[in-house]
Design a protein around this nucleic acid. Structure first.
Lengths: 203, 203
DNA sequence: CAGGTTCTGGACCGTAGGGTCCAGAGCGTA
DNA sequence: TACGCTCTGGACCCTACGGTCCAGAACCTG
């Protein structure tokens, strides 16, 4: 595990990460077993510990890392722009499409955050970093909108970015039992309306 | 379990429910063990199964029921009114105060919903009912505001209610790592601004 | 006090699941 | 071909935890 991994090794390792990610998304961390991962990847126990000496917790951390990257990439190139209304709407659509593609109204990072907060503080901090990064990119977009004069100068980018991200996560939560995207879209669109109206969220 | 419970029995049973609720809020369902509950309540295994023959799942369901009631009661009397701006703000403050009192930025029902969605479909449905009830009360409030002419008639009560509830749940999620209520308040206030501006969330 | 109930204590069981170990296969390289 | 590395299979161990059982204490009622 000091970086010396064969090409085959890299592939196996990646296969394990992705399969674990799917299991976690479907059943949570607690509902994901190493035996399940082993079966899904046609590997053996020893391989899991060969690639992830730290055991399950290390594996989960790698999954969080991987999922975090995937999530941000799914929002490209718009997430790094967000300087026009078109860009915001394209971003919104890409995000909803990404979640739709997952086959379940849940955020890989968000659900991880919920579970980790209750069980694994270290992992929780790790996931929180992803969230902060994401929130920061949204705030940057709002700043660009402000700089371009598209939104009112009184808008607080950080607070609004937090509200938007909250709408995404909370919207997903409500979408889950409905098996429909409408709560997510309602929440998200409401927040985009806030941006559009340039209304200020009072401290 | 056919309703024949002594006064003492009732108390013990209730004690178990509340202690379990605290453990679940702190560590999630998976992180809550019957042995832990037993220790916290100074009871024995047999008592747990005496009062909850269905075992852990029945106990958790009762906890969900109890927490759902507590959550709604904490929002009274405003939740059943919400016909004026004062009422909305008093409701908002009461809700934040309730979460503050829990000592952790998490919703007893919300976190249950997340975990249940991944592990226990039956419980998930049960919790979803609480959420729907809650959402309905918010929607009723919006309708009252509309009827009184305080907000624009183009506002869709159900969509906005969903957005508000999403803001609460998502805001809590972001507040957790920050150990501060500001993300929750930012999200919640943004949504109240939507209500105030009477802006429509397009379908 | 007698009888029946509710309630309580704690020993015990079964199993799921994380983690360990080691022998051997596969594969690259001198 | 010989050596040494990474990679793989699977048997094994151990603990945690949900759940069972039964004997006896506490309590109520006549």
């Amino acid at each position: 595990m000091d970086g010396t991994l064969t090409k085959r090794g890299q592939q196996t390792r990646q296969r394990i990460i992705e399969a674990t990610g799917q299991q976690i998304l479907a059943s949570g961390i607690g509902g994901t077993t190493l035996d399940g991962v082993r079966a899904a990847t046609l590997t053996s126990k020893s391989q899991l510990f060969h690639y992830f000496p730290g055991g399950k917790s290390e594996l989960v951390r790698e999954v969080a890392n991987w999922e975090g990257q995937q999530l941000l990439e799914a929002q490209l190139p718009w997430l790094d722009d967000l300087a026009t209304w078109e860009s915001w709407h394209a971003w919104r659509d890409a995000l909803v499409a990404y979640y739709l593609g997952l086959g379940r109204w849940a955020c890989p990072i968000g659900s991880l955050a919920w579970e980790a907060a209750a069980t694994d503080p270290e992992l929780a901090g790790f996931v929180a970093q992803s969230m902060t990064l994401w929130r920061g990119k949204l705030a940057d977009g709002i700043r660009r909108m402000r700089a371009a004069g598209h939104v009112d100068g009184s808008v607080d980018p950080d607070r609004l970015a937090a509200a938007i991200l909250a709408a995404v996560q909370g919207g997903l939560m409500l979408s889950q039992p409905e098996r429909s995207s409408w709560p997510l879209e309602a929440a998200l669109d409401s927040l985009l309306d806030v941006l559009r109206s340039g209304s200020r969220t009072p401290a």
